[in-house]
Design a binder for these strands. Structure first.
Lengths: 112, 112
DNA sequence: ATAGTCAATCGTAATATTACGATAAAATCG
DNA sequence: CGATTTTATCGTAATATTACGATTGACTAT
């Protein structure tokens, strides 16, 4: 008990849920917004910007990296992170499809 | 320790994270899709459709209801659920704004 | 009334997430 | 080289989520 029963759902549903999980924490939203506004950044800057501990930021960055949403490259003693444009577009479309599907049929809904 | 530090973030970031949480489980995605495709449904039908226990479905439905994404009305001995159209449009725009903000600046990104 | 049906809620076990101190690993500087 | 800086990882405590059996409450039908 306790773990999500992924076998009951199709891969599109499981994929979307995993992506949504990435957005399901305000720190990760803030990280993505900060990356978008600053073209590049380092972990250290984010620690000051967000007010969470360095280990915590690093953990959030790893989650975003594992989903391919961001990528990083070593820059001397620090690390530059930025958005992964191709992946980002992919994800945007995935959400758009989800919303479109549920919006098209809306005329039939609101029945209760 | 362990709880999300919401005070570090603004209300737009916290709001979006809460909404994303609703989509962060395949069962809730499946429920929303099923509601969109069938115009209305009852808890019992979802139990057969999804293969989760009745108590579990009811719990997922409550979460969606608490965010205003769906609404239900009693229909004899069963309950009809449907999407909340107005709220849905609101949420769709909230996500679109988030994606747009991160897409516009993308030309500057992908730098690492 | 009594039995039956359906969904909500309670209680709880299993698992996942969040946060952070401590430590490690890698590069830079003196 | 040794000291410093920066990020990743480990270990772990606190909290949240997921799932389900059991029960309750509300309505229906007999």
């Amino acid at each position: 008990m306790g773990a999500t029963k992924t076998t009951l759902f199709d891969s599109a549903q499981n994929d979307l849920a995993l992506l949504a999980k990435a957005f399901a924490h305000p720190a990760r939203i803030a990280i993505l917004q900060y990356l978008a506004s600053s073209t590049s950044c380092i972990n250290g800057t984010l620690v000051q910007e967000l007010g969470l501990a360095q280990a915590t930021i690093s953990q959030h960055l790893r989650e975003l990296k594992e989903l391919g949403l961001i990528q990083g490259s070593i820059e001397g003693t620090s690390v530059n992170y930025c958005l992964n444009v191709e992946r980002w577009e992919e994800v945007r479309l995935q959400f758009q499809d989800f919303f479109d599907l549920l919006t098209v049929k809306n005329a039939n809904a609101n029945c209760c």
